[in-house]
Design a protein around this nucleic acid. Structure first.
Lengths: 340, 340
DNA sequence: TATCCTCGCGATAACGTTATCTCGAAGGAT
DNA sequence: ATCCTTCGAGATAACGTTATCGCGAGGATA
């Protein structure tokens, strides 16, 4: 057992390959070969080196290895929120692990500046590739990184100002399915409350809803309410839709946060009388009364595809940019089957 | 605009400080000084270097910097699940960011092998410190890392086999509060279903519940059911507690997953007739009927404290090991106030 | 036995950055 | 006018690893 050296700061200094080589009485390069399981090393050397590694409790420094080899074996994921229910991220982590890649995840936190900082930081760390759930308005600042060969994949929404691979849900079909489902249950006044049209997914969903209304010969006025997802804004939209002269009897919500805001504003009693289909799965949707009917995104498929797109681009930086659209499914649970 | 060089692999090669120095006509060291905002650089040099940086779209390589300086500015968090509701992790990310630290989070996924791999990988990356929500039985394999000066903090549970800083909730008090609350509402047969006593939190909570029963002169038999959190096991425990000769009228659940398993097994009708207090906050607890009364952990405080403990240890590796116990609070919402 | 490979280990350069040291020029004091 | 100090920039080593190259020993072939 060799005592750990300490540097001037007083903090212990970890042994390096040089130390191991000295301890084992072999060359530095031989230690490297043993660590990397190079088969051309003689068995007696392997024994000596492994003994020295154990004696010093040597641990290779990945930073140095990465610097030398040029690859990090790590991909980054800049998502809106880690630490919240995020099945896409879970799928990304699982897929990355299966591919032997380490995942580095960070929350952009609905903050454009933070998104910028995270992405630039990931570039400076020379990650092998980056998956981003875009939030900002303009990502043209990433063009130099793209030119430098940084593999980049957008998830849930395309990026603006640059051309990158993208995987996203079929928003239009999903909204169409929700509308159609409610229409089939006898509703004629169906309202929509959803996210702001600033982001593409919000734009697509609101547009699809307007199109559905028109296709069924219904008027659009007073029924489509995109905007910020704040309790107040959602409450106002809800009041307009439900308490006007020609009140809606059914509602489609454009994403999970809007769905929850609606449920909280209405309260359990009123909510149970309203026909409601939410876009996006909601945790514990099955425990609510009535259980919540939703348009579910294939989140696992989206996350998996994001990693596969990224791996494909890492393997072939020159391949054509690709957009994958993943279908959505209707989950009938009760709230969407309230009759008019 | 200088064209990006390509290495033999065909992938673009990013410009380095040497390239910038050549472009700017200055020494390598001067570029480094500009990048690091060294005030001793003459203004005309700053202009020249910054122009060269922009022209080449140079981006410093953090790996090389980290290797040279020895610090990564990054802390790791090995938690059971990123991508699930995890307020502790959210607080960790926020606190780390405010401290100028990058957070690297990974899911141990309730898998001891995976936990081991993640922790070792974090050590190899020479992160500045590690926060771990321990899962495995024995962490003695981390002793060499501790000796080497790797700062380590346990969250939610202490670690076994090594002595490290720890922040955790006051489990015993929480269970006591839950029991007392139900007792005050007239219940005399109160059952407990919770996690396995294999882990310390499960052990503490079950023990506290037994102690509460004894303190109130109640018999313990048939009322305390620790074990794996599978739907079948929870269902069996529930049947034993509720359908025996002397059935329980109230229930304390030992953690969120148990609470959800109970609610799902009982169904909405039966659940609304049972007095229930859950340990741990449940997402959407306010939307259930009745809304769920819980013992809430101060998750934000726990996450923040974990980072602070880690920073303190990074700053002073020799400081005494410290355990912080954070109080819990009772959130009265309805389910715990069902009378006997 | 001489020659040619082949195999396996060692010396050394290189990855891209920062830290240490040197050195020249400028400016003030004697 | 000379010396000393100060200031700012350049040359070079170093961080810990892997890749390239060289070289000596040993076996196969002529």
């Amino acid at each position: 057992m060799t005592r750990a050296r300490r540097d001037s700061g007083g903090r212990p200094k970890r042994p390096t390959m040089v130390d191991v080589a000295r301890e084992a009485g072999v060359a530095l390069r031989t230690v490297s070969r043993v660590v990397n399981q190079d088969p051309t090393v003689g068995p007696e050397y392997v024994v000596k080196v492994e003994a020295a590694i154990a004696a010093l409790s040597y641990r290779p420094d990945d930073r140095a290895r990465q610097l030398r080899t040029g690859v990090t074996g790590t991909i980054g994921a800049a998502v809106r929120r880690i630490a919240e229910v995020n099945p896409e991220l879970a799928a990304i982590e699982r897929t990355a692990r299966d591919a032997g890649l380490t995942l580095f995840a960070a929350s952009t936190d609905f903050d454009e500046t933070r998104e910028h900082d995270i992405l630039i930081s990931m570039c400076r760390q020379r990650l092998d590739g980056i998956i981003v759930e875009p939030f900002g308005e303009n990502h043209a600042y990433l063009q130099p990184e793209l030119d430098a060969g940084v593999p980049l994949v957008a998830m849930d929404r395309p990026m603006s100002g640059i051309s990158v691979d993208c995987v996203m849900s079929d928003n239009a079909s999903g909204i169409g399915m929700a509308f159609h489902h409610l229409h089939q249950h006898g509703h004629r006044r169906i309202a929509y409350i959803g996210d702001s049209e600033r982001v593409l997914s919000g734009r697509e969903r609101a547009a699809a809803f307007r199109a559905a209304l028109r296709a069924h010969g219904e008027a659009v006025e007073g029924l489509v309410h995109p905007g910020e997802i704040t309790p107040d804004r959602v409450a106002a939209a809800l009041d307009t839709a439900l308490h006007g002269p020609d009140p809606a009897t059914a509602l489609v919500t454009g994403n999970m946060d809007t769905t929850l805001a609606v449920l909280r504003h209405l309260g359990p009693q009123a909510a149970s009388r309203l026909a409601l289909v939410g876009f996006d799965e909601v945790p514990l949707a099955d425990l609510l009364q009535p259980a919540l009917t939703v348009i579910a995104q294939q989140t696992a498929e989206i996350g998996r595809t994001a990693v596969e797109l990224l791996r494909a681009r890492i393997a072939d930086p020159g391949r054509p940019v690709q957009t994958v659209v993943v279908p959505v499914t209707l989950k009938v649970r009760g709230s969407g089957e309230v009759r008019a």
